[in-house]
Design a protein around this nucleic acid. Structure first.
Lengths: 184, 184, 184, 184
DNA sequence: TATGAATGAGCGTTCATTCAT
DNA sequence: TATGAATGAACGCTCATTCAT
């Protein structure tokens, strides 16, 4: 995966993949039909932790507010995805998705649609509890996660030009949605 | 450009580029040092219209509200970038940027930093006029454009799974920032 | 080697080398970094027999005269180098040496300097024994071998215009150095 | 010519030849059928001065000895050929001759055979005058010029390993042929 | 099951040659 | 006669894939 992330599908050499995996080049073909199958399998494998992150501990009990749940989730996402190698996987999917429909499909099914469904549920909970005012937000949960996605891309491309405090940005974003906080 | 968009840098064959351009393979080398130079030049060339889109019609006079200016701008961006081939250029830059620092640099300098500066100016105008309440938004103009970027990526990757009404999404996003509209 | 001899470095096609070697083109690159490395290795390999020819049978015992030793050696050189494919290797080195300093260096170190040192030793032995009169010859052992070198080049270039009896020429040359023979 | 000398026939680019000649690439084809024809013509042209050197002022009058004539000639040859770019032409002919029979033929006819004939004439004059003792030398005039040829090759290939005083070497060589000189 | 040497199709790049101007 | 942009065949090199061990 590291190799594919660093170089993209076409520019990655199976020689390097094998070396990194500590096996011989031929061994890859015992487990995967060809380079494309290997790539798709690896992406699938790499997506699982992302899914786990999403579906894992359904927001800690009922104690917290919806904002707390979302913020906690975002904080985890930013910490574990946006600022790590996992963020590059997302970028890799953006990069190779159009040439690997199977990859885009899988990612949409396992991550995007489920993630958006989860966000929509939280938004609706927020609306029900009166924490969120804007009803139409539930129609576009993408808006909720957009800054987190932007943070992922920013880290890969522009971090060295201008660092971005993703957590702080997301907090400001939540202020927009939930209204400004009095005290933190 | 079409070839690079469709296949990415590494998988694009100069044979195909030449054929598409209606010239012989060798002719490419009369104009570009090598494949990388060709790619970087093409990206540069393709970015110019994006920049023009950004800097062109300085929001129509003073008559309109800040929201109108932003909405007009977003509508233009979505119409001319997100839903066209130009959107794929943005995706291509996201995909190849890490392997082509020159490309990422150029894009940051010409598009990102200027775009964000423009957005920040509009946000500050909105704050001054009282249209925008949330002061901290000016610190993260990325939040303002995030849904537009998401729309670009969505079109490339997931349009066929679930179409996304980018204009409508952006309108909802602006409602969050400017407060809900009385009249639509 | 045959291919390089027949066409020179630049005009030799690796396709042909591979075909002649009975392997696929890619196989060459398992053993040599590139065409230059292949060429230099082949030259090195081809020079070894020349060196062996030089250093091998240390002139037969002490029985013979110095002239006999030199003549025996020259006869072997003419028979095994000048009139064979190995002679073309020498010509190849003359041809490509200036563009392959590593080749020229190696050839100088392994063949030329050792060969001249050997000749100088024989000349000094000849002087000590009174067989050779001309003291200064030891300063230029090149004079001793010059006709042999000329014979090598002649075979490659002019053999078809005018055959050259290299052995006979060398005998005349030795007559000059050792004085004419009484009995032949 | 400079280009062909520096790189050999195959590795020389007509682009560079044209640039060096101060004409456009196409212009070459107005004067020469193709690269081979250009090469052969250039060689022919370059050989002319060598020939002139050979046939020029037939040894100064009758005053001098045969040795003086040969020595004068050799000195001129070494000064004007062995240690100059013209020497590289000889090396170029050795290098490319086998692939360009026309070149080898021309060189043999214009230079080698005439040169050897001239040398043979001088040798016979030397024999007639009693300056040279060794009758058989006339059968192999190559022996007379061999050290000069060696000097040419040496300059190109080994000059930097070990400089060679060609004039001094040739003087020693002449001592062998004419007998040692009392006074110089 | 694992290896890695061998393969050869395929690609980037070069450069002799052409030809419209 | 001279130009130099354009051509495209050809070559060096790579790398996904195979297969004998």
């Amino acid at each position: 995966m590291e190799e594919f992330i660093a170089r993209g599908f076409a520019a990655t050499r199976l020689d390097d993949v094998a070396k990194r995996a500590g096996v011989a080049k031929g061994t890859i073909y015992l487990h995967f039909k060809d380079k494309e199958a290997l790539f798709e399998e690896l992406i699938r494998l790499a997506i699982v932790p992302l899914v786990n992150r999403l579906t894992a501990p359904p927001p800690p009990a009922a104690g917290g507010t919806v904002r707390d749940m979302i913020e906690g989730f975002a904080r985890a996402f930013i910490h574990e995805v946006a600022t790590t190698r996992r963020g590059d996987i997302v970028r890799l999917i953006v990069a190779e998705g159009p040439r690997f429909p199977a990859v885009a499909d899988f990612y949409y099914r396992e991550v995007v649609s489920r993630g958006l469904a989860g966000m929509r549920a939280l938004i609706e909970l927020g609306l029900a509890r009166g924490e969120i005012q804007h009803k139409e937000l539930a129609r576009f949960p993408q808006i909720l996660v957009a800054p987190a996605m932007i943070a992922v891309i920013w880290q890969s491309l522009f971090a060295r030009h201008a660092p971005l405090d993703a957590n702080e940005m997301f907090r400001v974003h939540l202020d927009l949605i939930f209204g400004e906080r009095r005290t933190t």
